[in-house]
Amino acid sequence: MSAVLSCSGLVSGYLNRPVLHGVSLDIPQQGVMALIGPNGHGKTTLLRTLSGFLTLRAGHISLNGTDINRASVHARVESGLIHVPQGDQLFTEMTVEENLLMGAYLCVDGAEVSNRLNEVFALFPKLKDRRNQMASGLSGGERRMVGIGRGLMADAKLLMLDEPSLGLAPLVIEQIYEALGHLRQSGMAFLVVEENPSRLLSFADSLCLMDAGHIVWRGTAEEAKSSGDILKTYLGGQ
């Protein structure tokens, strides 16, 4: 299967300190790829590099075969590379609906936008009740739903989720993953970053393990379960 996004030899980071030391990765057209690994080893940096906030020192990124090495953030969004950042980053003083509408900012077709809005409301019915509430007044779980919903409002080819379970109660994580489970039927590609892989082992189609700025292991969820040593080494025996 061809890759929706492929990158090779990525080197990037902050100021004079590279965080990624040559990351190569192919993300399949469909299904969920999980990127796991301990904190501070470059997972978020990789996403920020892919979405264009950090400039590449070396390496290539191509989206659906088109080179996007030097493309701006909004150009990448335009071509369907959608990044749902860590910690939601909602527009706090806007309503839930306005937040979601911002997700479809690049879509100027009003009917299409309200279609997508209804889809998001169908997925997260809670948000429909809260549509006119300020985002700042939401609970952590609702915020996460707005964050993910906002990503879904865009015309995504690849949706990158940075720690969708971060800071949530187990029950809420359950709800979020349930919704994500519905989404995988849509035929979209997902890259899900988590520090704790326990849930992703059953959820993802393939896994990548990141350590110190390198991808040190990749394979299917079954392979990961059977070759438990690797995961144990890095994540302390899951």
Binding site: M94, Y105, L106
Partner: peptide
């Protein structure tokens, strides 16, 4: 308006607005 929403979004959270495709 969509235009105004983009301005407010940029004011509230510049990076997030860029992730929505706002220039």
């Amino acid at each position: 308006t969509r235009f105004g929403r983009a301005i407010r979004a940029t004011a509230l959270n510049r990076e997030a607005a860029m992730l929505m495709g706002v220039k």
